[in-house]
Design a protein around this nucleic acid. Structure first.
Lengths: 234, 234
DNA sequence: ACAAAAGTGTTCTGTATACACCCATGG
DNA sequence: CCATGGGTGTATACAGAACACTTTTGT
């Protein structure tokens, strides 16, 4: 389990390596963060990112994937190393460095039972409570990272369902950049990249008229990547 | 010492945390890398990045700084975390993850005695020999990082002496990007950023006419950072 | 019929790019 | 006097930014 691993190891004379996951989702126009309330000492009752000690025989990256899977049931989603948190005094209990990772998940697809069972919950990114240790810093760093990353990688598609409308995509970018975008310019830009396949279907959930749905075209995206391109949108 | 720390700790039942430093310099139009030849087992005689185990009471970042200082005598130079290398089998001897860092140093300023004493040497970035473990991968990753970083931060100034000419700066960018740049456009671009103070002096080392020297204006650079800007040069 | 979101084009402006010649100096 | 690298300006193309109205349809 995410918390017990760590706790069962407490000793004062050695270094522990852990990983903590900053898990983002997107829903109803808001960027969300998955956190959980600790049920065991130390720090019982405090909000925390989800993490675990890295096992001796386990790749660090695999540990992060394991954590994500344990709490959301998901694998194969976008996940990347953020950075390490290695201050000697970051954890008052024992010497532990954390290699933080961040993940972008489709908020419709996670395993709700599992999340509930672990006492985890989604928080709007503006309403994240105080977290244990340096976890708020991790969230801040991860946010900056995805903001920057969105400029050269189409990060948004990881967070949306398979079929999505252009206004939906725009709301996502607005949530990440924290600014309003011009609908005409936005549409022009994303369509010009040639990585969207328009479907016949419409999404009628947000308007009477309905917005056409699109799918992300991974083949064209690969081509684009090879050429090098700029996804800057503002 | 950079190697002995690690070696004196060998045990099979625990996780070690190390740091390895990718140290770049720039000289005579070439980007260079500082590496050293191991003098003790294991892997005696092999080329390696410079690294050390992170001490129990030491911040990871401080460990990286310590390593850099031990071998070059420098501190206060630009140094940043690259990423972690956490494969369970990356080091056949024992379980050790490495938090790699990269540094950009002024090649005229390091302590030559110290470097020599450690068996270290500068290699042209195109002529780096095979290194131990995953160190070649670290170098490759660091190179990609500085290439990308150069697009939004004026990374070049860390590698040049305090006073430098515009052609010198251009050669540095050419070495990092691995492509020829147009001298007129390059000059136009860097001057337009308003972060260079022109001096009266000239550098006559590369031409008879001499090229005016400049200093980097950190105050204006801070202003620029606040506005957000694009250092893209090509 | 009206409210509410989706969808559509054009103009302007700034910036990146391409490109060729004169300048200053030491030898 | 000439070889070598330093320094300068202009024209063109392209991409980002600003901007307002029509369409659709459920209620």
């Amino acid at each position: 389990m995410e918390e017990t691993d760590k706790d069962s190891y407490i000793q004062g004379d050695r270094m522990y390596v852990a990983t903590d996951c900053v898990i983002f989702g997107f829903d109803e126009g808001n960027l969300k963060l998955l956190i959980f309330k600790r049920r065991v000492e130390p720090l019982r009752g405090e909000w925390s990112l989800i993490g675990s000690v890295v096992r001796l025989e386990e790749d660090v990256q695999d540990a992060a994937k394991r954590v994500l899977k344990e709490i959301t049931g998901l694998d194969g989603v976008f996940m990347e190393e953020l950075k390490s948190y290695g201050k000697a005094d970051r954890d008052p209990g024992y010497r532990c460095i954390s290699i933080a990772h961040y993940a972008l998940i489709r908020i419709g697809e996670y395993d709700k039972e599992l999340v509930k069972k672990h006492g985890a919950d989604w928080y709007d990114i503006d309403e994240v409570p105080q977290l244990v240790l340096d976890h708020n810093q991790m969230v801040k760093d991860a946010l900056e990272r995805i903001k920057r990353k969105a400029r050269y990688k189409p990060i948004g598609f990881e967070l949306l369902p398979e079929k999505f409308s252009i206004p939906q995509l725009q709301r996502l970018y607005e949530a990440v950049y924290r600014e309003q975008l011009d609908a005409r310019n936005f549409r022009k830009k994303v369509i010009s990249l040639n990585v969207l396949n328009k479907l016949e279907e419409k999404d009628k959930s947000t308007s009477k008229r309905g917005a056409f749905l699109y799918k992300f075209n991974y083949v064209n995206y690969q081509k684009l990547l090879r050429q090098g391109f700029n996804f800057e949108i503002s």
